[in-house]
Nucleic acid binder design. Structure first.
Lengths: 99, 99
DNA sequence: ATGTAATATTAGTTAAAGCTAATGTTAGGG
DNA sequence: CCCTAACATTAGCTTTAACTAATATTACAT
């Protein structure tokens, strides 16, 4: 591969991985692996304050890793990027698979 | 999964991903996908100064993502973690695969 | 219209990552 | 022994990520 292309692709990959490299965001994404969840449900699983969770959700939305659906006052989040699903499944096997 | 276990595993995963989330380290690891390379060879592929490359190599060594072999004054680096091989192959398909 | 539940945003501070510049180590050649 | 090549380390500075605290928005019920 030509050097400038390698650089620009590694910059894209860096950006992608950085957006993933946070325990709160990983817990959120992991929780979404088996379907959509509301913010309140996520708050119940992820040990952070509401504003902090909301900040991380904003980042995941901007990255388009997740998408939302509103139902009344409740907002449901779901995975929206096939790459995220794949990499989260891989991370699950690395860090969460049974012995 | 119990909440404290989920937290500690996501902390491990965060650490793992952060060590990967850098364009220079990604270029190095990508270059090692098809075999070992000396520092000089890596310098030829990766557009950074020698001390910066060396700092990133030190981090990759401490993370045990890579291992080294010395031959005279030359030090050869190779991949040393199967998880890295897997995830780098995945990143390659996401960011570098031919349309 | 007022109140409350659910969620989002903004400003300010702190901590961690990455760079530059200088210097150190190790191995081999003359 | 001295010099050079190959590589590593350290200190100081700058940038970026993440948290806290306070406040704002949106939807629904009374």
């Amino acid at each position: 591969m030509d050097p400038s292309q390698m650089l620009s692709r590694s910059e894209d990959a860096e950006q992608f991985l950085k957006q993933l490299s946070n325990k709160t965001r990983l817990m959120v994404l992991c929780s979404l692996l088996d379907g959509e969840r509301s913010v309140t449900e996520l708050l119940d699983k992820v040990p952070v304050t509401q504003p902090v969770l909301s900040q991380h959700l904003a980042l995941l939305r901007e990255a388009e890793f997740v998408a939302t659906r509103r139902s009344g006052q409740t907002i449901y989040y779901r995975l929206a990027d096939e790459r995220i699903t794949q990499i989260m499944n891989l991370m699950y096997t690395f860090f969460c698979a049974e012995d």
